[in-house]
């Protein structure tokens, strides 16, 4: 464990909490892409299948349970509890355009052709594109509430911090997880445009981020 990875995990946890609290307190999921949240729940489910078979550390196990529980709770709030507030006409990204290539690639590019490894690889590739429906929804509506942009900021920051973690681990313990690194860089690149808008608009105190 290093400070970059810990900061990344905390940033990830903060992002998930921000979204969950926002939906719960506002009793609404307007402007939130339910599809992205379902994809994130799928990412955690396929990545943490080793939850009961492999014990890394108490921290690792606890965080996996927390991430799984909160992502399913978010999906539950969007599609069950506050489904009448779900903005389905703006959440129209075709997720099959994400799932098909990701499934194909995880069969082609993986560390071992075993169910657990292929599902882990699938979760890594899927996480890189899971935010697409949300970013697409923002470009479609042309705006995002500032709390949603804070959610996206911490979500993007988490994988950027993981890149620092991978650089650190490469130099200190000769660790290099090529699939995670390549996918993580692609994922972070997808946030760059948002990061620019976040810094130039939201941090200037705008109530909400209006896209140009």
């Amino acid at each position: 464990m290093n400070v970059f990875r810990l900061a990344g995990d905390v940033s990830h946890l903060v992002a998930i909490i921000i979204l969950l609290v926002k939906i719960w307190r506002s009793k609404s999921c307007a402007g939130i892409s339910g599809k992205s949240q379902v994809l994130f729940a799928l990412v955690f489910t396929t990545r943490y299948l080793d939850l009961f078979t492999v014990f890394i550390s108490a921290y690792n196990t606890i965080m996996k349970v927390v991430f799984l529980a909160m992502s399913y709770a978010t999906v539950y709030l969007i599609y069950m509890r506050f489904r009448n507030m779900y903005d389905s006409e703006n959440d129209t990204f075709r997720v099959e355009f994400l799932l098909v290539p990701v499934i194909g690639l995880s069969f082609l590019e993986n560390y071992a052709f075993t169910p657990l490894e292929i599902l882990w690889t699938f979760s890594i590739f899927l996480e890189a594109v899971a935010i697409m429906p949300q970013l697409f929804m923002i470009t479609k509506t042309g705006e995002a509430e500032s709390i949603t942009t804070h959610y996206l900021f911490f979500l993007g920051l988490y994988r950027a911090l993981y890149i620092a973690n991978w650089v650190w681990r490469y130099h200190t313990e000769e660790f290099f997880d090529q699939i995670a690194v390549v996918s993580g860089v692609v994922q972070t690149i997808f946030y760059c445009d948002f990061f620019y808008l976040y810094v130039t608009r939201v941090l200037r105190g705008k109530a909400k981020m209006i896209l140009p």
Binding site: D9, V54, Y162, F175, D177, A180
Partner: peptide
Amino acid sequence: PSQNSPHDEL
């Protein structure tokens, strides 16, 4: 450099 197994990152 090695990829990690088991995967120890979240």
